[in-house]
Simulated assay, not measured.
Amino acid sequence: MDCHHFAAGRCRSCNWLEQPVADQVTAKERGVRELLAPWPELSWLEPVRSREAGFRNKAKLVVSGSIEAPVLGILDGAGHGVDLSDCPLYPAALAAAFAPLTEFITRAALAPYDLMARRGELKYLLVTVSPTGELMVRWVLRSTEPLARIKKHLPWLQAQLPQLRVASLNIQPEHKAILEGEREILLTEVETLPMELDGVRLQLRPQSFFQTNTEIAAALYRQARSWVDDLAPSSAWDLYCGVGGFALHCAAPGRVMHGVEISAEAVQSAITTATELGSVATFEAGDATAWALAQPAAPELVVVNPPRRGIGPELAAWLETSVADAVLYSSCNAVTLARDLAAMPSLRPVKAVLLDMFPHTAHYEVLTLLRRG
């Protein structure tokens, strides 16, 4: 992938860009295999490769510059704005929204936040695009001071971007480089952005996490569903379930599937999707480890999709002594994956696949199936 920002040294986020994509995937899989070498019986599927460009479904843009000339992108080492609105990672449907959104900042007089001077209002612009081209736009602000102006000019933006489905403000008052705050103010009647993957129409709310590579996320869920259907468990949990991607793809008649996630916003997204689909999957908000340890017994299958820190010693120890026949572990960090696997010696990894969720970087997703015995 050619990128003039990388070539000019303005942005180095894609720090593996100079390597051919095939070599990137080979290096990622080699590194993961080395970490999982203590389990030589592990069978590896062919890696799942991503498109080189245009694969990101979400833009997280620092807003700098001035009201009259906003800059959407990142900050350089000196704190100056770098315009990344033409970053080749963004698909056309996402990139086309940046010009109207930039003009909207000027129309609504949203002063970009200056971190060093501690003045201004608008910190970030977060834009998500669905597979059908619909948009969710979130303005991260220090306060609600610009709310009236945003509401006044929102009809203009909606006329410019008829694909705008969800719009909201996120209030983050701290003088820190924190992406977003807890308070969200919806500006549209519609509250969710549909993200359809293989017939499962996930409903994404503003503060819900979703993988940034839609095509690879779909491949991840397809592989999980295939392995789960082969196992045919009658009961399963989806821990760290997010918006319910694994649970909703793997749910089936006669299979009790329950998801647990710390984010109440994500759980509401999952419940909305399950209701629309008529799915048998159920969801609740809670800490995955605390919730699991409080249950009288484990189901036949447990799906875990933890953050980079992994599931940790408590949950690993509980799974090790539980009656669960299988664990499906989705990991973005094979270091903590290997640590967690070592803490569950009775659950042997039998199948794995690497998915290139984040091309041009060292990051990936790896899905591993563990069986007891």
Rank of each mutant, 00 (worst) to 15 (best):
G79W: 08
A148L: 09
L141A: 10
L193Y: 13
S331Q: 12
T106D: 00
A326W: 15
L239P: 00
L179Q: 02
L154Y: 05
G9Y: 05
Q211V: 02
V200M: 01
E284I: 00
L94W: 08
A108M: 00
E145V: 15
P40V: 06
R138A: 10
E46G: 00
A274W: 03
V127M: 09
A109E: 01
G245C: 02
W44I: 00
P20L: 03
P70N: 12
L135T: 02
G120W: 14
R142M: 06
V366Q: 11
G181W: 09
A290R: 12
V267E: 02
V21D: 10
S64N: 14
I185W: 03
D230L: 12
Q223T: 08
A294E: 07
D76H: 12
G259M: 04
S85L: 05
A59W: 04
A288W: 07
S322V: 04
L369F: 03
V323G: 07
F98Q: 06
A236D: 04
Q19N: 08
I171G: 04
L369A: 02
A177F: 13
I271Y: 02
G254N: 11
E34H: 13
P131K: 04
R149Y: 03
A316W: 10
A290M: 00
T273P: 10
T282L: 11
S130R: 07
V21N: 00
V303N: 01
D287R: 07
E284F: 01
A264D: 09
P345F: 11
K60N: 08
P70I: 07
G310F: 09
C3Y: 12
L370K: 09
C11T: 10
F55P: 00
W227M: 08
T282S: 15
P359T: 15
E68T: 15
D340I: 06
V243Y: 11
A334N: 14
Q268H: 11
L36I: 06
T214V: 04
G312H: 10
A218W: 09
T336L: 05
L84E: 11
S50Y: 01
V48G: 01
L36D: 08
